[in-house]
């Protein structure tokens, strides 16, 4: 896309094309799209005359870089002992089945990233799931799916607002 290469040219110029400033350049690039798309990395490498392997090495070494887009929402499900006893495994299975997303992954439509964690320290209200940091307690497979279906709508309206 010509737009991409324009953005990359701007970023490269910002640092006088100094390849020592690769990390700040990649940070700026990530700020544009939220992650580092492969074709943009390739394009940046061409501008700096650096092999893609070098950019990939940097992107995978530092924890602040992402090679895949994150979902619009972050869903975390507790798999601690108590939550597990109260059925969080079946919640996880239900989410995987309904949204085709494994723990640690992101849905194909990038609606949400799904994470399973060991214990969130909220055993008293198990099973626990958080969505963008908001706690939902005592969830069941049905109520978890209901919450996540609610996200779809939120996401769509948010997008629409952005477009108008």
């Amino acid at each position: 896309m010509p737009e991409d290469s324009e953005i990359i040219e701007q970023i490269v110029d910002r640092y006088d094309g100094d390849d020592g400033m690769l990390i700040p350049m990649m940070q700026d690039l990530q700020a544009e799209s939220g992650y580092l798309p492969a074709d943009q990395l390739r394009c940046l490498g061409r501008h700096l005359r650096l092999p893609l392997s070098r950019l990939y090495a940097v992107a995978t070494f530092y924890s602040s870089f992402r090679l895949a887009p994150k979902g619009a929402h972050e869903v975390t499900l507790c798999m601690g002992t108590v939550c597990y006893l109260k059925g969080s495994a079946s919640i996880s299975e239900a989410i995987t089945r309904e949204f085709q997303v494994e723990p640690g992954g992101t849905t194909r439509d990038r609606l949400f990233s799904f994470q399973a964690v060991n214990c969130m320290g909220a055993c008293a209200v198990a099973p626990v799931m958080t969505v963008d940091g908001k706690y939902y307690n005592g969830v069941s497979p049905a109520s978890a799916l209901e919450i996540l279906y609610g996200l779809t709508k939120e996401h769509v309206t948010a997008d629409k607002e952005e477009q108008t």
Binding site: G20, L22, I23, Q27, A57, V58, F61, Y62, S63
Partner: peptide, 25 residues
Amino acid sequence: NRGGGAFVCGESTALMASLEGRPGE
């Protein structure tokens, strides 16, 4: 320069590698 989020970059030679645009080893 803003770091990339790697603890080891506090080590002087790793920090310099990072400043050169390489992994902070």
